[in-house]
């Protein structure tokens, strides 16, 4: 069981001259194997929320559980996969070397064949390529393969496709859904794109800013596997409009 549970979580940053409240009163339960999208204006605390779950930051208040464990324990047990907005690959390692990094660091027998992972994200034949030789989309695939290297129980992604063009982004979305289904991890995706949020998620959480709170929660009851044609269906558009209304409701603008 690896639900992600946040109980009354708040995060405040101490600046030299004042205190910034990034998140307040976050109550969440993300069921095992679910796919959740986080959307909200810039600076509303989406990245902060992911960093709290990944144990990069500690909450100022409240409690976080990943399965039965605190994030710090889950992290040391290598149960967390994280994907950043920019691919953040080590430029001196080739594709395979980057995917192997978590395995090397953990010093555990690999549960997954790194080569098979590279295959799975569609980069067969590019094992020896350096990051600088890859396009943005390919780099992001490497980052996803790296995040999956230790078979994480939860997969956290912070605007992973934000820098990609629309066409590449849609292709990556489909692949990500396929990978997620085949691994059964609990996925959280931060995104700026309303259609991406609806297309990918079981649940779309709309955050409001200052301080960051969960303002709306929209269940996406579209069947899986999702297909691109669904984006043209009325039900899909209705859901998009619902998210859009929720976003504009209290922030006035999507940043």
């Amino acid at each position: 069981m690896t639900e992600i549970i946040l109980r009354n979580v708040a995060k405040r940053f101490l600046l030299p001259d004042r205190e910034v409240s990034a998140l307040e009163g976050i109550e969440l339960t993300l069921p095992t194997g679910s796919f959740t999208a986080l959307i909200g204006p810039s600076g509303c605390g989406k990245s902060t929320l992911l960093r709290l779950v990944a144990d990069v930051l500690r909450p100022s208040e409240g409690e976080i559980r990943i399965g039965a464990n605190a994030p710090s324990v889950a992290r040391r047990k290598h149960e967390i996969g994280f994907v950043f907005q920019e691919a953040s690959l080590l430029p001196w390692r080739n594709v395979l070397g980057n995917v192997c990094l978590p395995i090397e660091v953990a010093r555990v027998p690999a549960t997954r064949d790194p080569k098979a992972l590279v295959h799975m994200v569609g980069l067969a034949g590019f094992e020896e390529a350096r990051p600088a030789q890859l396009s943005g989309g390919m780099q992001q695939r490497v980052a996803i393969a790296r995040a999956l290297a230790l078979d994480p129980k939860v997969l956290l992604m912070d605007e992973p496709f934000g820098a990609l063009d629309e066409i590449t982004r849609q292709r990556m979305n489909l692949e990500l859904l396929r990978i997620w289904k085949s691994t059964g991890t609990t996925a959280v995706l931060v995104t700026h794109s309303i259609s991406e949020a609806v297309f990918m998620a079981d649940t779309v959480l709309v955050l409001s800013a200052n301080p960051g709170r969960i303002a709306h929660r929209i269940e996406v009851d579209m069947p899986r596997p999702r297909r691109l044609e669904m984006m043209r269906q009325l039900a899909f558009n209705a859901l998009e409009n619902e998210v859009r209304a929720a976003l504009f409701d209290d922030s006035g603008a999507v940043a």
């Binding site: 144990d55 990069v56 992290r75 967390i80 994280f82 950043f84």
Partner: peptide, 14 residues
């Protein structure tokens, strides 16, 4: 890179 530092933290590097 700051992201890299966070990555190494998340994968629990010594």
């Amino acid at each position: 890179d700051r992201n890299m530092e966070e990555l190494f933290h998340v994968i629990a590097a010594s």
